[in-house]
Nucleic acid binder design. Structure first.
Length: 1059
RNA sequence: GCUCGAGUGGCGGAAUUGGUAGACGCGCUGGAUUCAAAAUCCAGUGUUUUAGGACGUGCGGGUUCGAUUCCCGCCUCGAGUACCA
C-alpha cells in the first residue's frame, strides 16, 4: 500500500493552487460574498513561531468552509510593514529599514506558503509601499479637510465651514473643536489675514496641530499614544515615559466618542473586548459647575476668575468643603496669593519631577498645598478654600474638582490629611471611617432644597437649578482623549504637509504619494529634530508642486519646509481592509465604489485581543469618519470578531550550580546552646561566604539533573547544611572540579557546605518529549558551556573532558514551565520544522485540536503524533482493500492501491458519515474547531472498523476534512477521479433519516445516580417504559425492598427512580 | 482597588436547551509483531475499596427527581485598567 507521503502531496498542491490562482476572489460574481480577514502581521525579523498561525488556520478553515457552502470569499493577506523594530535595527546596523522589511516579508511569505493557506495573494498590501501609503496620506488630508458638526452629528468638509464663517461668523457653529475659540462675525472673518484664517480653521479640523501634553519616551526618541504605554513604560522596549508639552498632530477621535460607544451594540464582538472599549471611552454622566473665585487683595487679582468643574455627583454640591485643582491647571498661577506663592511653586516643581510611573506606583501618598484663594459656593455663597493636589489629573474633565469629602474617598483622604472639614450631607450615613459613596440608598440632607431626595431626584433638581442660575449644566464627559498622531521617527508615512508662515498646508492630493526621503542616519538631528530633519531634500515648492532642496539665501519664495514627523503605526492599519477590496484600479482610487459596495464590511475578523483599545478603536473611528464624508458605505469595519488565544511555550530549565554555593562552619549542638559563640560562628562563616560569593567562577559550569535537584532539595534543601554521608561522598566526588583557591572550604571536617542552583532557560530544541536534554547539543550551544559538567539523574557525573568516550547510563532531565512563547525564553517552536516532520495538514489540525480557539493554551510537540496518526489512518482508509479485492475505481491507474467502491455503503457507515456532517457543520459555525477534529477521529475509527470503502461515504468525508487538512483532501479528491479542485465542491448535505434510531440505551438512575442501562424501543410510552424498568431484575436489587415514591421518565433521555 | 474571564484525570481538553462526567488525543501499563528499535496493531487506564460499593468537575451553601451546567457567598489563577471626580 502506498504510504502517506505528506511532503510530496503538500508541495504538489501548494504549487497547483498558486499556479491556477485557485483562491482568487472575484469582484463580480453571482455568488453571495463573504469577507474573512486576519489581522495582518508585522513582519518581524524572528519569523513565525507555531503560535502565530493559529488565527490564520482558523480563518482559513472558515474560509474554505464558506467556499464549500457556495460563497465568493475574499480572504486576503498583507503586511503592517512600517514600525519601530525595523527602524531600531536600522539605527544599529545602518541598513535601510525598507531592505530588512523586504527580507522579513519574504521569510514570512515562505513560512505562510508552507501552511497551505487559501489567501488571495494578488490583493496583498504592504503599508510601507508608496502605492499604499499614498492613500493613507490621502485619507489624512480628508481628515485635515474636515470638521465635526455637532448639530448634524457628522464630519463635514472644511470648505462648508468657511462658507458659514463668511456668512455668519462662528457664533452659531456648533462644532467639536478646541476650547476657548473667540467669537467673530462674518465681516471680521473676511477681514482676517489668510494666516489668521488658517489658524482658526486648524482649531476645527479633525486632525489638528496643537501644543499638547504628550507621552515622551526619551530612549525611543518619540512620543507614544496611550495604548502604546503599558504600566507606565513603553510597550516596545519597556523604556520610561515622561509627560512633555509638544506641538503635535492629533486626531479628534473624541468627536466620535458617543458613536463609537453606540456602535458596539451593533457588532458581534466578544464581550470582554467591547467592555474594554467601553471602559477606554469612559463615558460618565454628571454636570459641569462654575465656581467664582473670590477676590483676594493679596493675590493681585485684576479680573474675576472662575473655576469650572465636572462632577458625576452634582447632588452632593452642598457637601463641598474645598476645591482641588491639578497642579498644571492654568488658573493656579493666577489665583495663588502672595503668602502661598512659594509653597505652591515648590509643590508644582516637585510634582513635575515625578515621573508618571512614580505617581502611579505611589497612589497612597497624599500631597497638596493651599493656594490661598477662595471660591464662592454658587448656592450658599460660602467661601471654599482652593487647593492644588496631584490626585487631580490635568487631562481629565476640566482638571479641577469640587471636593465632597463625605461622598468621595479621595476627597475624604485629602480632607483628613490636611484637617479640612467633612460635612455630612447623607441621612443616616456613617462617615467616621470613610466616605459614603453608595448612590442607591442615598437620601440627601443638610442640603437646602435637595433635602430628603434620593440620588436620582436630587440630581435632576440640582441640574435644573444650576441651569436656571446659569452656573452649570448637565454634561457628559469622556475619558477618551484625542489621539496623538505624530511620531518623531523615520520608518512611517510622511505627512503630506508643508508650513507656510508657521501654518500647515496640505500638499495637493494629485501630488501624492509624498515619498519617504533618504537619510544618512536614522537618528534625530543634533538640534533634536526627527530623523527626517537629516534629509537633504525635504522642502516643498508650492509653485512647481515638487519636493526640493532647501532654498539658499534670498531665493525661493515658493519653497517651504515639509513636516518632519511621520505617522504612527496605526495609520496604515486603520483602513487596510478596504484596500483588499480593490483589485484592478488601485492607482486611481483607494478602493472603487463598486468594490466597496460589493464587499461592504469584513464579515469575520480574527486577531489578538491586545489590539482592543488601539487598532480596533482607531479603525472604527476612521471608518465612521470615512462614512460621514461619503467615502465608504459602511459605519463599522468588522461585523464579527474573534480573538484567538495565545499559544504558550513550554520552557525548559536546566539547573546550574553557580556562584551561589555557600559554605559555613559546622555548628555542633553544644555551640548552639551557647548563644554568644553561636553568633560568633555565624559571623565568622559570613565572612567566608562573602569571600566565596565574590568568586563568581566557582562551580559555575556544573549542571544538575532536575530530579536530582529536587531530591537534594527535598531531602535536605540546597541551602541547608549538608550532613548526610552520601552527600559528603558526593561533595568529595565533585571536589575535583573545585578551583584550588577555594578548596580549603571543601574540607568537610572543618566546614559544612551548602549548595544552591538556579534554573536557566535551555533551548527546547535540545530537549525531547521525555524532558531529556541532548547534552552534546547543549554544550555546543554556547561557548561557555563547552566544558560543562553534568550531574545525571542517577547521581553519576558526566564530564566529557575526562571521559570523552560518551556519557554513562543516566539521563539528564530538565524541568518544564509554561510561559509566553518568545525568542528570549528559548521556547520557540518553529512551524517549518513541524511541517517538515509531520506536514502542514498535521500542524493545522493539531493547532485546532489543542483546545478552544479563544483560549490560551500551551504547545506540546509530543502530542502531535495523535493527529498525525489520524491522518495516516485516514489515508489508509482510502487505500485498504477491505473486501479482499481491488476497488472498482482507480483513476490514476498508477500503483493501483487506491480502493474505493461504487457499491452502496452500510447503514452504519452512512450513520457515521451523517453524524459527522452534522457535527462538523455545527462546530465550524460555532468556531469550535477542536471538537470537530475529535469527531473526524471518531469517524475514521468507526469507518475503519466498519471496513468501509464506499464512494458515497468516502467522497463527502474528503470534503468535510478539506477545510482542516486541504492537501490530503485534494489528493484523495483527485484520486477519487475529480479534475477540479476540491475547494469549491459543495458541502455534503446532512440528512436526518440516517440518524433515526429505533431504540435507546436508557440510563436508569436511582435517586439521581446512574446504576445500569437498559435498551428500550423509542416508541414506548412513559407507562410502558416504567413497567419495563420496574420489571427489570436489577431494579428490585437497587430498591432493596423500598417502594419508589416517584419515577421520573423523560422519553429518549433518562429514567430516574426516587425512593 | 475596579472590570472581565477561567478553575473538570498525570497532561491538552469533551459533555450543544439541567438528564449516563471524563468523548477525542497525549502520556502511562500490559500484550502481539521484531534479532532489536522505530512504526503498527490489541487491551487497560479518575480516586479509593473489605470488590458490593463509596467518593469524585476550586471551596461552602441553596434550588431540583436529577447540577460541570442555574442561584447566593467565598478561594485561587489569568487578562485588562489604574487616583477618571
Amino acid at each position: 500500500m502506498s504510504k502517506y507521503h505528506f511532503n510530496e502531496i503538500e508541495a504538489k498542491w501548494q504549487k497547483h493552487w498558486a499556479k491556477n490562482q485557485t483562491f482568487k476572489a472575484e469582484n463580480k460574481s453571482d455568488k453571495p460574498k463573504y469577507y474573512v480577514l486576519d489581522m495582518f502581521p508585522y513582519p518581524s525579523g524572528a519569523g513565525l513561531h507555531v503560535g502565530h498561525p493559529l488565527g490564520y488556520i482558523a480563518s482559513d478553515i472558515y474560509t474554505r468552509y464558506k467556499r464549500h457552502q457556495g460563497f465568493n470569499v475574499l480572504h486576503p493577506q498583507g503586511y503592517d510593514s512600517f514600525g519601530l523594530p525595523a527602524e531600531q535595527y536600522a539605527i544599529q546596523t545602518g541598513q535601510h529599514p525598507a531592505k530588512t522589511t523586504e527580507e522579513n516579508i519574504s521569510r514570512y511569505r515562505e513560512q505562510l506558503d508552507k501552511l497551505g493557506f487559501s489567501f488571495d495573494w494578488s490583493r496583498e498590501v504592504r503599508t510601507s509601499n508608496p502605492e499604499y501609503y499614498r492613500w493613507t496620506q490621502w485619507i489624512f488630508l480628508q481628515l485635515f479637510d474636515s470638521w465635526y458638526d455637532k448639530d448634524q452629528n457628522k464630519a463635514r468638509a472644511i470648505e462648508e465651514l468657511r462658507v458659514v464663517f463668511s456668512s455668519e461668523g462662528n457664533i452659531h457653529v456648533n462644532a467639536i473643536c478646541d476650547e476657548g475659540i473667540a467669537h467673530f462675525t462674518a465681516s471680521e472673518w473676511l477681514d482676517f489675514s489668510e494666516t489668521k484664517k488658517q489658524e482658526i480653521l486648524l482649531k476645527y479640523r479633525l486632525t489638528y496641530l496643537a501644543e499638547t501634553e504628550v507621552n515622551w519616551c526619551p530612549q525611543l526618541g518619540t512620543v507614544l499614544a496611550n495604548d502604546e504605554i503599558v504600566n507606565g513604560v513603553s510597550e516596545r522596549g519597556g523604556y520610561p515615559v515622561v509627560r512633555k508639552k509638544m506641538k503635535q498632530w492629533s486626531m479628534r477621535i473624541t468627536a466620535y466618542a458617543q458613536r463609537l460607544l453606540d456602535g458596539l451594540d451593533k457588532i458581534d464582538w466578544p464581550q470582554p473586548l467591547k467592555d474594554s472599549q467601553t471602559n477606554w471611552i469612559g463615558r460618565s454622566k454628571g454636570a459641569s459647575v462654575t465656581f467664582k473665585v473670590k477676590n483676594v487683595p493679596s493675590s493681585a487679582v485684576e479680573k474675576s476668575y472662575s473655576i469650572d468643574v465636572f462632577t458625576t455627583r452634582p447632588d452632593t454640591i452642598f457637601g463641598v468643603s474645598f476645591m482641588t485643582l491639578a497642579p498644571e491647571h492654568d488658573l493656579v498661577s493666577k489665583i495663588t496669593t502672595a503668602e502661598q506663592k512659594e509653597a505652591v511653586e515648590n509643590y508644582i516643581e516637585a510634582t513635575a519631577k515625578r515621573s508618571e510611573r512614580e505617581r502611579m506606583a505611589d497612589v497612597k501618598t497624599i500631597t497638596g498645598v493651599f493656594t490661598g484663594a477662595y471660591a464662592e459656593h454658587p448656592f450658599t455663597g460660602d467661601s471654599i478654600p482652593v487647593w492644588i493636589g496631584d490626585y487631580v489629573l490635568a487631562g481629565y474633565g476640566t482638571g479641577a474638582v469640587m471636593s465632597v469629602p463625605c461622598g468621595d474617598q479621595r476627597d475624604y483622604d485629602f480632607a483628613k490629611h490636611f484637617n479640612l472639614p467633612i460635612p455630612n450631607i447623607f441621612k443616616d450615613a456613617d462617615i467616621s471611617e470613610g466616605a459614603y459613596s453608595d448612590k442607591e440608598n442615598t437620601i440627601i440632607t443638610n442640603s437646602d432644597f435637595l433635602n430628603d431626595l434620593n440620588y436620582q431626584q436630587a440630581t435632576e433638581k440640582i441640574i435644573t437649578a444650576l441651569e436656571e442660575k446659569g452656573v452649570g449644566e448637565g454634561k457628559i464627559n469622556y475619558r477618551l482623549r484625542d489621539a496623538v498622531f505624530s511620531r518623531q521617527r523615520y520608518w512611517g508615512e510622511p505627512f503630506p504637509i508643508y508650513y507656510k508662515n508657521g501654518m500647515p498646508h496640505a500638499i495637493p492630493t494629485e501630488c501624492l504619494p509624498l515619498r519617504l526621503p533618504e537619510v544618512e542616519k536614522y537618528l534625530p538631528t543634533e538640534e533634536g529634530e526627527p530623523p527626517l530633519g537629516r534629509a537633504t531634500k525635504w522642502y516643498w515648492n508650492e509653485k512647481n508642486s515638487e519636493v526640493v532642496s532647501p532654498p539658499s539665501e534670498g531665493q525661493g519664495e515658493d519653497i517651504y519646509p515639509l513636516e518632519l514627523n511621520t505617522m504612527p503605526g496605526w495609520a496604515g492599519s486603520s483602513w487596510y481592509f478596504f484596500r483588499y477590496m480593490e483589485d484592478e484600479n488601485r492607482d486611481e482610487v483607494f478602493a472603487s465604489k463598486e468594490a466597496l459596495n460589493y464587499w461592504k464590511n469584513v464579515d469575520l475578523y480574527i486577531g489578538g485581543s491586545e489590539h482592543a483599545t488601539g487598532h480596533l478603536l482607531y479603525s472604527r473611528f476612521w471608518v465612521k469618519f470615512m462614512h460621514d464624508r461619503g467615502l465608504v458605505p459602511v459605519e463599522e469595519p468588522f461585523k464579527k470578531l474573534i480573538n484567538q488565544g495565545m499559544i504558550l511555550g513550554e520552557s525548559a530549565f536546566v539547573y546550574r550550580m553557580n556562584s551561589k554555593i555557600t559554605i559555613s562552619k559546622i555548628v555542633s549542638a553544644d555551640d548552639q546552646s551557647k548563644s554568644e559563640n553561636w553568633t560568633k560562628t555565624i559571623s565568622d562563616s559570613r565572612i567566608k561566604d562573602i569571600e566565596l560569593t565574590n568568586d563568581k567562577i566557582l562551580l559555575s559550569n556544573i549542571f544538575v539533573d532536575f530530579n536530582e535537584y529536587k531530591r537534594i532539595k527535598k531531602e535536605k534543601g540546597f541551602s541547608n547544611i549538608i550532613m548526610k554521608d552520601w552527600e559528603k561522598e558526593r561533595i568529595k566526588a565533585y571536589s575535583k572540579f573545585i578551583p584550588e583557591n577555594v578548596k580549603e572550604f571543601f574540607n568537610l571536617d572543618k566546614y559544612s557546605i551548602s549548595f544552591n542552583a538556579d534554573g536557566i532557560h535551555a533551548d527546547v530544541l535540545f530537549v525531547n518529549s521525555h524532558n531529556e536534554l541532548d547534552i552534546e547539543a547543549f554544550k555546543n550551544w554556547r561557548e561557555e558551556y563547552k566544558d560543562a559538567i553534568f550531574i545525571l539523574e542517577d547521581g553519576s557525573i558526566f564530564d566529557s573532558n575526562s571521559s570523552p568516550s560518551g556519557r554513562p547510563g543516566g539521563d539528564f532531565k530538565v524541568s518544564r514551565e509554561v510561559e509566553k512563547m518568545s525568542k528570549s525564553k528559548y521556547n520557540v517552536v518553529n512551524p517549518d520544522d513541524i511541517c517538515n516532520q509531520y506536514g502542514a495538514d498535521t500542524l493545522r489540525m493539531y493547532e485546532m485540536f489543542l483546545g478552544p480557539l479563544e483560549q490560551a493554551k500551551p504547545w506540546n510537540t509530543a502530542g502531535i503524533t495523535g493527529v498525525h496518526g489520524f491522518l495516516k489512518k485516514l489515508w489508509k482508509l482510502y487505500h485498504s482493500p477491505f473486501e479482499g479485492g481491488k476497488g472498482d475505481v482507480s483513476p490514476s491507474q498508477e500503483p493501483n492501491d487506491f480502493y474505493v467502491s461504487n457499491e452502496a455503503a452500510s447503514k452504519d457507515s452512512l450513520k457515521t458519515l451523517h453524524k459527522t456532517i452534522k457535527k462538523t457543520q455545527e462546530d465550524i459555525e460555532h468556531f469550535s474547531f477542536n471538537t470537530s477534529v475529535s469527531s473526524f477521529m471518531i469517524a475514521v475509527n468507526e469507518l475503519s472498523a466498519q471496513k468501509c470503502n464506499a464512494r458515497e461515504v468516502l467522497e463527502p468525508l474528503a470534503i468535510l476534512i478539506s477545510p482542516y487538512a486541504p492537501h490530503i483532501a485534494e489528493e484523495l479528491w483527485q484520486k477519487l477521479g475529480h479534475s477540479e479542485s476540491i475547494s469549491t465542491a459543495p458541502f455534503p448535505k446532512f440528512e436526518q433519516q440516517y440518524l433515526v434510531e429505533s431504540s435507546k440505551e436508557y440510563p436508569i438512575s436511582f435517586n439521581g445516580k446512574m446504576r445500569f442501562t437498559l435498551e428500550l424501543p423509542l416508541d414506548l410510552s412513559k407507562e410502558e417504559i416504567e413497567s419495563a424498568v420496574m420489571a427489570h431484575e436489577k431494579t428490585a436489587q437497587y430498591l432493596e425492598g423500598r417502594t419508589p415514591k416517584k419515577v421520573i421518565i423523560v422519553p429518549g433521555k433518562i429514567v430516574n427512580i426516587v425512593g
